[in-house]
Amino acid sequence: MVDMARVWPILCQFGIGGLLCAVGVWAGLSSGYLDMKLKDDRRLVAVIVGGFVGLLVLSCAFTFWLPFVGGGDAS
């Protein structure tokens, strides 16, 4: 059974974090400052999304998988 005390932190961090990222990207796009016709700007959006996904994967690995790998007690 999933321990919600371990799930809520991920939902909270990446939920509010996703909202903050969305606000920033929206502000860039709606102002025209972020121009998706430019290679650098496309790369920036890709890196923002990639960083978000990478951190999410890392967080899930250290919550649902790696704590149970190897020996150790359950203190």
Partner: peptide
Amino acid sequence: VDWWALMPESHRYIFSEFNKPDKFSFIGVY
């Protein structure tokens, strides 16, 4: 692998529990 095995399981999580302990809960630190 050997270092990891010496770490108590409670020490292997990237986030602390949502609302405990009082002085290091996830929601407080976040």
